[in-house]
């Protein structure tokens, strides 16, 4: 930055903490990781909504502790700042246990950020959602299906505890067919009644890339 270019003292709608995390984001994934660096990855959001958040986790299985968390976000300043601050909250003091980290709520993230403009609140809700999605993927990989967090959404695959919400999320991200969804979620493999269920969800939600459907946004 050249000498004559300094940050002014404009009265922004964002708090100093939000600005700090936006201009100096912590823990984002700089380069694509080599295989094995992380134990699980998860993503929520869609281009139609304008926010996509990915999270990578490294977990110490003995202590059930999150030892590394990295993220990437497509979204506005508050989405970037919220993910950044969330990563700090999870990783402080050598990392929270899974049990502790799950308890971080959207309002905790908001408080840590020093508040957000009202219309931006949905962005911070995304960070904990992406985290839970990633944790669920971790639980599946580890075969710990009893730990999967369903958040009140209807479970459509009892074996893998995959929820309707998760399937819809993948459809919004561009999956068009049963095969594409299975490639992502392994849902309903060998269970014809689950496949029928997914076909219905595809029918209902396909093409919404061109018609925004953003459940996180206020109407």
């Amino acid at each position: 930055m050249s000498k004559d270019v300094v940050s002014g003292d404009q009265n922004w709608a964002y708090s100093d903490k939000v600005k700090d995390h936006f201009f100096n984001p912590r823990n984002f994934l700089n380069e694509d990781p080599p295989a094995g660096q992380f134990d699980a990855q998860g993503q929520v959001g869609s281009l139609a909504c304008g926010d996509i958040m990915s999270i990578w986790l490294k977990i110490d299985p003995d202590q059930d502790r999150i030892v590394d968390l990295k993220w990437r976000t497509f979204g506005c300043a508050s989405a970037i700042a919220a993910t950044s601050v969330f990563s700090e909250m999870v990783l402080k003091n050598g990392g929270l246990t899974i049990e502790e980290a799950i308890k971080i709520s959207p309002s905790d993230i908001m408080a840590e950020l020093g508040g957000l403009p009202a219309r931006k609140v949905h962005c911070s809700v995304l960070a904990d959602k992406a985290f839970r999605q990633t944790l669920n993927n971790y639980f599946r990989i580890r075969g710990q299906h009893n730990r999967i967090i369903t958040d009140g959404s209807r479970v459509i695959d009892l074996d893998l505890k995959i929820t309707e919400q998760e399937v819809v999320e993948v459809i919004h991200q561009g999956a068009q067919t049963l095969e594409e969804i299975q490639a992502r979620l392994k849902v309903g493999v060998g269970r014809p009644e689950v496949k029928a269920e997914i076909e219905k969800l595809i029918e209902k939600h396909r093409g919404q890339e061109s018609k925004p459907f953003c459940p996180r946004q206020k109407p």
Binding site: S7, G50, C76, A77, A79
Partner: peptide, 22 residues
């Protein structure tokens, strides 16, 4: 995303606008 670009540009003293939802 557009709003993120605007904030960075504003940081450098440049005024622009975006059609982003954010």
């Amino acid at each position: 995303e557009g709003e993120a670009m605007l904030l960075w540009l504003d940081h450098y003293g440049i005024a622009a606008s975006t059609g982003s939802a954010c």
